[in-house]
Write a protein that binds this DNA or RNA. Sequence first.
DNA 1: CTGTTTATCGTCAGGAAGACGACTATGATC
DNA 2: GATCATAGTCGTCTTCCTGACGATAAACAG
Lengths: 251, 251
Amino acid sequence: MPYDPSAFPPFAVTVDLVVLTVRRHALCALVVRRGESPYQGRWALPGGFVRVDEDLEDAAARELAEETGLRVQDPGSGSVGAHLEQLATYGDPRRDPRMRVVSVAYLVLAPDLPSPTAGGDAHSVRWAQVDTLLEPGDGTEGGGDRPVPLAFDHDRILADGVERARSKIEYSSLATAFCPPEFTVGELRRVYEAVWGVALDPRNFHRKVTGTPGFLVPTGGTTTRQGGRPAQLFRAGGATLLNPPMLRPEI
Amino acid sequence: MPYDPSAFPPFAVTVDLVVLTVRRHALCALVVRRGESPYQGRWALPGGFVRVDEDLEDAAARELAEETGLRVQDPGSGSVGAHLEQLATYGDPRRDPRMRVVSVAYLVLAPDLPSPTAGGDAHSVRWAQVDTLLEPGDGTEGGGDRPVPLAFDHDRILADGVERARSKIEYSSLATAFCPPEFTVGELRRVYEAVWGVALDPRNFHRKVTGTPGFLVPTGGTTTRQGGRPAQLFRAGGATLLNPPMLRPEI
DNA sequence: CTGTTTATCGTCAGGAAGACGACTATGATC
DNA sequence: GATCATAGTCGTCTTCCTGACGATAAACAG
């Protein structure tokens, strides 16, 4: 690949990942502790440089696998995988004090994982509750009771990713990406409740999701892992767009 | 800005613009003719390199002004301006044969302009109907009756931009960005019809848009520029999100 | 056996949208 | 000036969807 540095200004290009999951009824994001300057010791979104001959989405999938061991969902195979989509690109000239870095952020929606650190650096990667991370921080390390902001502009990237997830589960079947391959209507409802931070009526929710063609496919099995009456098990159906959408309750 | 080429692979970063407007009842996009290799003589989306100390959105606004003379809407002032938002980023390693280029695409929605070439190169920039551009081309220059594809991956970028515009006018008041500062309900309806490529019922449309709080503000004036009974003039209201949304008719 | 929990079915009222009739106010045409 | 074509605006009716909520079902804990 010919490269003439005088012809155009050189940039570094990175990918950053907003990896979301639902754990214990709360929306959580994957964060890693920075080992080096700048922002040494601060939490940040996982990410890294794009390689010279690597597509952006490949770089995002590679970083995801390196940090979590997660594989991206293979459309066609029914494999257990995460949903990955491009979020936005952040290129403020001063977002990295060392050099001009343009970062392409990707959004990952994953089911709750057995171990958050499979394949990664155990003590420096963890799931953090999104609503804790996104409280406005005061910047003092341990000074107040509010969290230290993430490194770089990662607070904003995280907020954009969360907002994307919140709005996208309204009109798509993407909420199933937070669920294991087989799940109950109640489990799916608890995903919506965690992502939106609201309570939903179980009866109306049940009517809505089972009445939308292509959203859910019954597998025939039942489970009782939540206690109470056994619930039917479903897989995600082929539909990707919900029409009419799920309605997020007003504040 | 320190730059150590051994520390990270160097990329060129560009912005590409999907500039859409509605002209003569048709959705049109701005295209420029390439004067140099590669893809010499082919039509392409306007765009260019991001400068070293320039924010991505500033680069997009600069390119827009250079090509069309259009200014970006200033939120707060009631100025006549275009809507600009980031669309997506395209970084396939082989999308430009010369070097590794990552392009951040922006979507611009503009009212119909008096002259498409104000401030630009007159013979090499024009409005082209989107549905003509997006017919699948056969790649032969003048061989078939189908259009020659745009340069690079610009066909895909254009398609993504058009799809974004089509879906975004459903749940936002963004269709007003295609209208002059004062417009009638009929003119707004013709925007929806052109962007979606469907016919809408004038009576139901009128009820919907005038009944949505904050969408339209009457200015008091009337006009008869479309013939027929004079119509009330409106400005865009403060609302940005439409709830419930405009419903795009099924195919 | 009884209470608790979760799942699932049913009913009813209110709101929004599609289909479409009717009336109004212009300019164009005879 | 009467008539016609064109757009704009107001109403009505039916249908569908949702929110609120009662009622029943099937498990487990004591």
